[in-house]
């Protein structure tokens, strides 16, 4: 392998690593607030890519209709439960109606408009997943929540298949510029991905450190009961955590969809790699998750160069010693 090839692979690895980090952050947020391992995050990523691709091709994506239907169901549920507030009306009536109108009348083939609209369509699926799947079982065991998440993955993958068919799709890149650093071509898209991910990670840090909503989420994460006692609505926190996770998933879908084609079933694997990064971060530490994400991205990129058929085997099999080391270190810190 020449140094140039290595650098090119490293660039690929860093780009996908940045995506995995975004997903890892989404997973960490959802897990710490609700104890749910949000496996279907990757499926939302795929739905976002497919939605944006269809918009850019001039179509009206099925996810929009699905959103309208689910939002209506959520609204009816709130009305039946006598819990209608201005906020629920805004979330489940005005927002979907506005999106539908924007899709119908807006310039949806415009790449940027399509991206924003696609992200706006997919993000509410996070709170909807919370509302219909996890909230009714919020007190179940970790294992039951994990199984629910797995089942939701199959449902969402099926939705992707039904709405978009089995073929992969790509979205237009944010930029097609290329930067030459000596003989090495650095793609503008890679730079944009890394920059956006860095900005978002910084933004999330600010959100959790400085805003009241962010602090409420952190409080729920560290002590559910205590948060409830000081008047933080745990259900509301859960909805917000899922919204954040779905948002980063949708954004990741738009970013990665310009680099590699995404089909309805690719998302799961990408989500798993985000999960790997999150686990390396111990489901708690953001800097460690960042290191893990880059590690996974680079490993995968090098692995695909050496033995492309074995790419995933390499990533996942190498994970086993990493996990062993992590668990040994954890023991060494706590026990003799």
């Amino acid at each position: 392998m020449t140094p140039f090839v290595f650098l090119a692979l490293l660039q690929d690895g860093l780009t996908s690593g940045a995506i995995y980090l975004l997903l890892a952050m989404g997973l960490l947020i959802v897990f710490s607030v609700t104890r749910v391992i949000f496996v279907p995050q990757g499926d939302l990523l795929a739905l976002a890519t497919l939605t944006v691709a269809q918009l850019q091709a001039g179509g009206v994506p099925g996810t929009l209709w699905l959103l309208d239907a689910l939002a209506l169901a959520a609204l009816l549920g709130e009305i039946a439960g006598g819990r209608t507030t201005r906020r629920t009306l805004a979330a489940w009536l005005i927002y979907p109606a506005a999106l539908t109108a924007a899709c119908w009348f807006g310039p949806r083939t415009d790449p940027w408009f399509a991206m924003l609209l696609g992200i706006a369509i997919v993000t509410p699926f996070g709170p909807l997943a919370w509302r219909f799947v996890f909230r009714p079982a919020a007190d179940a065991s970790l294992l039951a929540l994990l199984i629910l998440a797995m089942a939701l993955h199959f449902v969402l993958a099926g939705v992707g298949m039904v709405l978009f068919g089995p073929d992969g799709a790509s979205v237009a890149p944010l930029t097609s510029a290329t930067l030459m650093a000596g003989p090495l071509a650095i793609s503008g898209q890679s730079l944009a991905v890394v920059a956006i991910c860095a900005a978002l990670v910084g933004g999330l840090r600010w959100f959790f450190g400085a805003t009241l909503t962010g602090k409420a989420l952190r409080a729920t994460a560290s002590d559910r009961l205590g948060a409830r006692l000081v008047g933080i609505d745990a259900a509301e926190s859960g909805a917000r955590a899922f919204a954040l996770a779905a948002f980063v998933a949708a954004l990741s879908g738009v970013l990665i969809g310009a680099v590699t084609p995404i089909a309805y079933d690719t998302g799961f694997e990408i989500g798993l790699k985000g999960f790997v990064a999150a686990i390396i971060g111990g489901l708690a530490s953001y800097p460690a998750a960042a290191a893990g994400a880059v590690l996974v991205g680079v490993l995968e990129s090098l692995g695909s160069f050496w033995a492309s058929a074995w790419r995933d085997v390499i990533v996942f099999a190498l994970l086993i010693p990493v996990l062993a080391w992590l668990s040994l270190r954890q023991r060494a810190a706590g026990e003799p």
Partner: peptide, 17 residues
């Protein structure tokens, strides 16, 4: 296609809740 996997998973979700 994926309908049966979907239906099955939906059943799992409803049951576990």
């Amino acid at each position: 296609g994926n309908y049966e996997a979907m239906a099955f998973s939906l059943a799992v979700i409803l049951f576990l809740q």
